[in-house]
């Protein structure tokens, strides 16, 4: 488990990480989300022991050898072969018997004997993953591991991270919210060094974003907006350009009980009606706006 208490990092007057209390459960895949400059990399580097906190504490239930760090753009001595990079990592943290396995898992079996200097960006990223996994880490800290990859490379990286669930704790930062939503059990949202939210993605989607119903009515029907705005459980009605009304409600339960009745009493012909599927992106923007 990772636990930080009041973790703070200052650079002069600038506060890069501001009193962060983070908890990441054992065996989970946790996403660290934030804009560029939100403090994600600084937080990860403090967790990895690469930077010293100005104040606060870090508690990690893993030994140094059980921790692996994957930078956003892994680089290695270009005159080494991919296999030699993994062998070097294995000599430092163990796992010599897994070299072929992790190279194969990273899709580098055929390229393993080629010099790293000729690798593409995606191959370097996959080599970084192989070098990180060869020691069977109990904790993987990955900084934007898929942000610079093509769709296939991203897919492979996310699959690797997903497969680690239950066997290792993974904390990875990303600004690609779809990746986080797909692969993570829990998520933290950072903004200007502060932790705005941490918890399960379900809690974030339900609890943080304003519940909203989408209503499509017949164009020749009476406008239901005056009737809707009179309801105490309606917090706003927004007419969208596609002819759909976005009805913001205080709770989904109220909408489920009363929305159809209000529309019917207003004489509006309803084509479709349903709760808006809130995306992580919407929740993120709502939290950070």
């Amino acid at each position: 488990m990772i636990q930080t208490t009041g973790l703070t990092k200052r650079y002069g007057e600038k506060v890069a990480v501001d009193a962060v209390d983070l908890v990441v459960e054992d065996g989970s895949v946790h996403g660290l989300v934030g804009r560029n400059g939100a403090g994600k990399t600084t937080l990860l580097r403090m967790l990895a022991g690469l930077r010293t906190p100005t104040s606060g504490s870090v508690s990690i239930e893993s030994r140094r050898e059980e921790l692996a760090v994957l930078p956003d753009t892994p680089r290695f001595d270009p005159w080494l072969t991919g296999r030699e990079v993994v062998e070097l990592a294995a000599s430092l943290v163990g796992g010599a018997d897994r070299i072929n396995e992790v190279l194969g898992g990273a899709g580098l079996s055929d390229a393993g004997d080629r010099r790293v200097g000729g690798y593409s960006r995606g191959m370097l990223q996959r080599l970084g993953i192989a070098a990180a996994l060869v020691g069977s880490p109990r904790l993987l800290l990955a900084d934007e591991p898929a942000s610079a990859l093509d769709p296939q490379g991203r897919r492979e990286v996310l699959d690797v991270i997903g497969r680690m669930r239950g066997e290792a704790t993974v904390l990875f930062s990303s600004h690609i919210l779809a990746d986080v939503q797909e692969v993570c059990d829990s998520v933290s949202i950072m903004e200007e060094g502060r932790l705005l939210f941490q918890g399960s993605i379900r809690d974030l989607l339900i609890g943080s974003a304003t519940p909203r119903y989408l209503v499509r009515i017949r164009p020749d029907s009476p406008d239901p907006r005056p009737a809707l705005m009179e309801q105490s459980w309606v917090s706003g009605v927004e007419a969208r350009s596609d002819g759909v009304l976005g009805v913001s409600v205080r709770s989904l339960e109220d909408a489920e009980l009363h929305l159809a009745g209000v529309l019917a009493s207003a004489g509006s012909g309803v084509i479709s009606l349903g709760p808006e599927a809130v995306t992580l992106e919407q929740a993120f923007l709502e939290l950070t706006s």
Binding site: P71, F76, L92, V93, G135
Partner: peptide, 10 residues
């Protein structure tokens, strides 16, 4: 820096 991270964290 990325190569420094490689050896420092291992």
């Amino acid at each position: 820096p990325e190569m420094g991270v490689f050896v420092r964290t291992r």
